[in-house]
Design a protein around this nucleic acid. Structure first.
Lengths: 222, 222, 222, 222
DNA sequence: AATGAATGAGACTTCATTCAT
DNA sequence: CATGAATGAAGTCTCATTCAT
């Protein structure tokens, strides 16, 4: 009996613990978005999470650990979004690639808040080896998938003279650059237009697979 | 005679003052590249410039002013590089556009150090209105020029169905995204490959003006 | 039970907090007396209180706030001293006035230390509006009471041609001037003689109520 | 001939030097009145005097020396004002005493600015032995004179039971206290009323020599 | 587990003083 | 004599971290 209770309590505790950690990570994202790295203090974070000052060092070894896990959360969130989208897009590579692009401009990962945090991290990446490691762990897989899709599309469409790896690099760079544009010009730019710009580019790259802008996308298995 | 001496002294003093400021700005760039924003202290900066602690607040109102002027220096340096390259590329728009792209991957503005600083600033842009103002002052002109070149190229090549503004946005985004790639993967990526990726993209966008990769560029007026 | 404990803890914490604040205020008084305003640093204060450097900004918003509260403490201490003395002096106005004068030369508020601090604050009053506000909050009441007593004494003694408000002003000014004298000539002057000087003046002002110096004071209700 | 020129130049230089010093002292008074001691920097002072930064340490050994001489200037100015007034008041002691009181409320020494500076110095007197020395050098003589006048007036008027030294102390204290009142309540109080309060007090102290307020002063030799 | 007071290193900034020009 | 750039000590304040409760 006590065992069950203990187990239950343990579970609850673990759950509560995880909840606290997530609360703190969310508050960290909010604070970085609002005040940036240099303006973010543990006080801000805990206040944002309606928790007491001391909890951070209770749940995380240090501020740096909290940041690491915050980046990990962001990266994971992004990863699952594009990966799930891709998997749900069916077997065809162009549909899968389109799904990835769509996911990248989904409000969940492409909000003004999230972009600010992404670039805050990237702005520190050069001298925080941890950040690059965390980022790389997820991005590596992503690049491999995009390259795979490019390879398949090129083979399927006989796009001679197009290096799939180069194409993949360009696609990723274009998306990242559009993200930066959204960050720098929040009033002028918008997600939908940025996504459409991506498809303009894809139409130029793979004209048999992606329609000219304005025209309907080719029917599946077409 | 005394007038001349006075003038000379004045000039020398002004020159010395400007030199000190530039010394400090350079040291700031070095420090941001090495330690990032949060790791950069005025102590680091002044030590890097082999100056005494107090000079910063003598030459700049505050640390923030120093940062503003550092970004201003970077932006100006970049501006003059691409702008001069463009002007020296002759009258044809495709050559001018190529010159801009070449400039963007010139080691002077695209070194590992400079990239780190650019992204450090961009990582703070959301809550430092000054940074965006400074950046915008130079970037606005750049976008206008690229859009102008796209317009001319599209007209010249009869590239139907291609929006020049959209194309310009994509070109800028691609460059920025490749910069981010260079920052994140300093070992794997390199400037030359990134620049070539740009030209791959341009070849897809404007096939009559930009050669397929590997093939020689079209002769002028060809 | 837990409630009681919580309450207790709360009380203890509040008490401890108040105690720390008072510790810092006392150390501030000591330091201002010893080194003056310009010589007083937060380091001095905290060392004087045997506390760590950071506590000041933990318990007070800024050094200025600490100073404000220090002046508040002094003013309150003075207020309660003369006010309580007055109330305990019985119903007759001359006794009450005498009690106020006595209180003003009580060692508690008229020590060499306290005088130094009083005049340190007054020396800054012109460009620190806060100080005057704090001072005024207590001094206004004091002047009103002295004026009231003068009014009653004048009515009771038929001292024709004496303005009570003018008399009150003179009495206050005399006391303040004697305080300054005590500050400037700590070796020569002394509290007792200063107080006696006050009574000399009162004897001239209200001869029916205050005895000539050396003679015994009139008996109560005499 | 050259000797004459040299002498002339020397004189001019000395005059210029003295003028510079006086300029700096005046600017110091202005700055202390406006910003207080802690807000006064040599930069403020030199800017106020429209001189260059470095001159202070050229004309004065240190900031402290400048302050010493500023207090000296103030004390001297006050001294000459009351002393000259006294001497011009004729041979009778009550007239002389009245002249001293009048001088003390002359705008030249009793302006809002000068009061602020006087109390700024007095606020530091306890731990700046120099200030008290400078002050004492002039004040000693003043007290002696007032005591002498009181002695003469008491003898002349047969004011039995009045200690001249005690009376002198009260007179000085009253004036100082009224000065403080003027400092603390610049809007309500005013010099004329403060001076009149003094004469109210003198009328109580020496009724045969000073008229009741409102009544005309006794005629000379009356 | 949680709270929040306390610590102390270190950041930015001010400013008296020095000194080359 | 005069200027103003430069120095560097010292001050206030912030904040990650620790720890008693």
């Amino acid at each position: 009996m006590t065992g069950v209770i203990a187990k239950k309590t343990g579970k609850t505790r673990t759950a509560a613990r995880a909840a606290r950690r997530q609360q703190l990570i969310s508050a960290t994202i909010d604070s970085i978005a609002e005040r940036g790295f240099s303006g973010t203090t543990l006080d801000n974070v805990t206040k944002g999470a309606s928790l007491s000052h001391g909890v951070v060092n209770f749940h995380f070894d240090s501020k740096e650990t909290l940041y690491d896990e915050t980046l990990g959360f962001l990266a994971r969130e992004h990863y699952f979004l594009w990966h799930d989208s891709m998997e749900q897009a069916g077997p065809e590579p162009d549909r899968q690639l389109a799904a990835i692009v769509e996911a990248d401009f989904n409000i969940k990962v492409c909000s003004s808040k999230k972009l600010a945090v992404w670039f805050a991290f990237w702005g520190q990446v050069k001298y925080r080896p941890n950040y690059i490691k965390i980022h790389y762990a997820y991005d590596e897989h992503r690049f491999a998938e995009i390259a795979r899709l490019c390879t398949e599309i090129i083979a399927h469409g006989n796009y001679d003279g197009l290096e799939p790896v180069s194409a993949a690099r360009c696609i990723e760079a274009l998306i990242d650059g559009l993200w930066l544009n959204l960050l720098l010009y929040p009033s002028g730019a918008n997600r939908i237009r940025a996504r459409d710009d991506c498809f303009v580019f894809l139409a130029k790259l793979f004209p048999k697979h992606f329609p000219e802008p304005g025209k309907p996308r080719r029917p599946a298995n077409g």
